[in-house]
Design a protein around this nucleic acid. Structure first.
Lengths: 106, 106
DNA sequence: TATAAGCGAAACCAATCGGTTGCGCAAATG
DNA sequence: CATTTGCGCAACCGATTGGTTTCGCTTATA
């Protein structure tokens, strides 16, 4: 199934999983040990991350190692690019100024 | 209500609204004209964006002008920072190499 | 070969989501 | 002053979400 990356990273548990897998490849059991919910719940998160290719798998016998795939994160970065210039400090003061201006009456 | 920025930008309609408001401040009616759904549906999106302060409002009579607030987007950028070094091209080849390596047998 | 371990899939459930219609209120307009 | 306009809110609805338990398959181990 095709998945939206933005929707995939919306869940805090999934973001934490991505954080783990960015450091090292891990099996579902190993990942699940870091959370309170069941292995199956984590497995569903893994499935979603896998579907939008934020992570990739490598089977090794009965174990499956999942690892982070940075490429798909580019989509998020690309979208944010249009705003990046806006949050730099030199623009913040202008922003605050505009915020306090009365909108022009028609 | 306190809202998660990641969850707020998960919805494509809300991302589109942010895109509009980054260009210029707009009233709910003006925003809604750009979409197929009702003004009330858009208003709910606006409410969510407002709750996590991705947008801010400025009342002018019976009209409310909403505008983009770049500051809150920093949280997303900050989280992505840890991965940014991973998707640069010089690392992609190493990534592909690691992907094709057999996991070490225990 | 019997048993245990690692994993995904399915069925189920309460909570949340994104949409709708209908309403009420304050501000603008005739 | 009556009417229109701009807006938020509440109630409702089907779909999706994130969790659980149960199950079955494959691979490792005793």
């Amino acid at each position: 199934m095709r998945r939206d990356v933005f929707q995939a990273i919306a869940d805090p548990t999934r973001r934490a999983i991505i954080g783990l897998l960015a450091l090292q490849a891990m099996t579902p059991n190993a990942i699940a040990e870091n959370f309170d919910s069941t292995r199956q719940a984590i497995s569903k998160h893994i499935k979603i991350l896998n579907e939008c290719q934020l992570i990739k798998q490598k089977q090794n016998g009965r174990e499956i190692y999942y690892h982070f795939n940075p490429k798909q994160m580019k989509e998020v970065d690309l979208w944010m690019e249009q705003f990046r210039k806006l949050w730099e400090t030199r623009f913040e003061q202008l922003d605050n100024l505009l915020e306090n201006l009365e909108p022009k009456k028609s």
